[in-house]
């Protein structure tokens, strides 16, 4: 009988009388969850514009915001894959550092220096796949595995440069770090870092929404047992998402190295994982997996960049920026809970 009660507690089929109203309400709800934090982003931008007496919406400032958002956007894109499966990757900051160190070290070798970029990216991929294998094959909890690699990989990053800062003022492809793609000469340009970030978002969208693998990622996050019973190779999906997260952390490391012409195993990428997770959650991706979109993540990353930039513009001290950002994280998770209440999961 409890069975019966449970099934009766379900919402009635949606085609009955008033179906149109129900559909409309559903549309509105879907629109709200699709738009997600976009209104918040716009309000923040406009608010900062006025508070800073018109210094926010200038070409130069917007360029800075985009450039500052770039690396976090790339990391957050990888994090989106992971969190969609209900996992977490705490190691992206450390992987970013070790990849940048590996890349810079490589770039100083005369003959093969130009290979530093793929080396950095593949280093990230390698560590990501190791994370994924530990999680998928040994069935260890993602939090524990990536907490471990957060520490261990940070150590390796320091080891690579013998705990010093590695410089290379003549690093190949330096333009991706500091150059801009000229759209209209003298009028409009966009930093290469932002172009890369945007491409990453586009490819992520393609994978998540237009491929079989994408559906499988959502399925694993939505209901892992059901996914297994439906014949999905859950282990392969998990290795893939942690691999992607590692690969994108490696790309982020390359972007940082090209931007700074230098890397330090101890300092580079410290607590970047927190900004990436914040961006994903702000973007409306559910922490338990199965729900979310890559566009939300882009908006989340932009909110973080706008928040940092705007707070500096209006002269808020560094210390208060921390406090405000922290409150934003908690607010975002509260929002996540609130949104989940309305979904079928509860």
């Amino acid at each position: 009988m409890p069975d019966n009660a449970a099934s009766k507690a379900q919402p009635a089929p949606v085609m009955t009388n008033g179906g149109a109203a129900e559909t409309k309400r559903q549309r509105v709800r879907m629109l709200i969850s699709a738009l997600g934090m976009l209104p918040v982003l716009l309000i923040l931008c406009i608010g900062f514009h006025f508070l800073s007496e018109g210094r926010f919406f200038t070409g130069q400032n917007l360029g800075i915001v985009l450039q500052q958002a770039a690396v976090n956007t790339v990391l957050a894109a990888g994090m989106t894959f992971v969190i969609l499966t209900g996992g977490i990757d705490l190691s992206v900051g450390s992987i970013l550092a070790v990849s940048a160190m590996a890349g810079l070290t490589m770039s100083k070798l005369p003959a093969v220096g130009a290979l530093w970029l793929p080396v950095a990216v593949l280093t990230g991929l390698g560590f990501g796949v190791v994370n994924g294998a530990l999680i998928a094959l040994l069935r260890l909890p993602p939090f524990i595995v990536t907490l471990g690699s957060l520490t261990a990989v940070r150590g390796l990053a320091r080891l690579l440069g013998a705990d010093t800062t590695v410089f290379n003022p003549s690093i190949p492809y330096a333009f991706i770090g500091n150059g801009s793609l000229i759209l209209v000469p003298g009028v409009a340009s966009i930093p290469w870092l932002s172009v890369i970030a945007l491409l990453v978002i586009l490819v992520s969208w393609l994978v998540l929404r237009r491929t079989v693998l994408g559906v499988h990622i959502y399925a694993v996050g939505g209901n892992e047992s059901a996914a297994r019973l439906a014949g999905i190779k859950v282990w392969a999906v998990l290795i893939f998402v942690y691999g992607v997260s590692g690969l994108l952390a490696g790309l982020g490391g390359a972007m940082q190295a090209a931007r700074l012409y230098a890397a330090n195993g101890l300092q580079l990428g410290q607590s970047y994982e927190l900004d990436a997770i914040t961006a994903v959650i702000l973007g409306g991706t559910s922490f338990v997996g199965g729900i979310g979109s890559i566009w939300g993540t882009l908006i989340g990353a932009l909110i973080i960049a706008v928040l940092s930039n705007g707070l500096i513009l209006i002269g808020v001290s560094d210390i208060w920026q921390y406090v405000i950002k922290g409150l934003v994280i908690i607010g975002a998770v509260a929002l996540d809970r609130y949104r989940l209440q309305g979904s079928a999961r509860t």
Binding site: Y218, N223, I291
Partner: peptide, 21 residues
């Protein structure tokens, strides 16, 4: 609910899941 459906996914995705590949 626990072992069959993906409650957050559309009916379309739920129906096609086994033949997507």
């Amino acid at each position: 609910k626990a072992l069959g459906l993906f409650l957050d996914m559309s009916c379309l995705d739920n129906i096609n899941l086994a033949v997507l590949g």
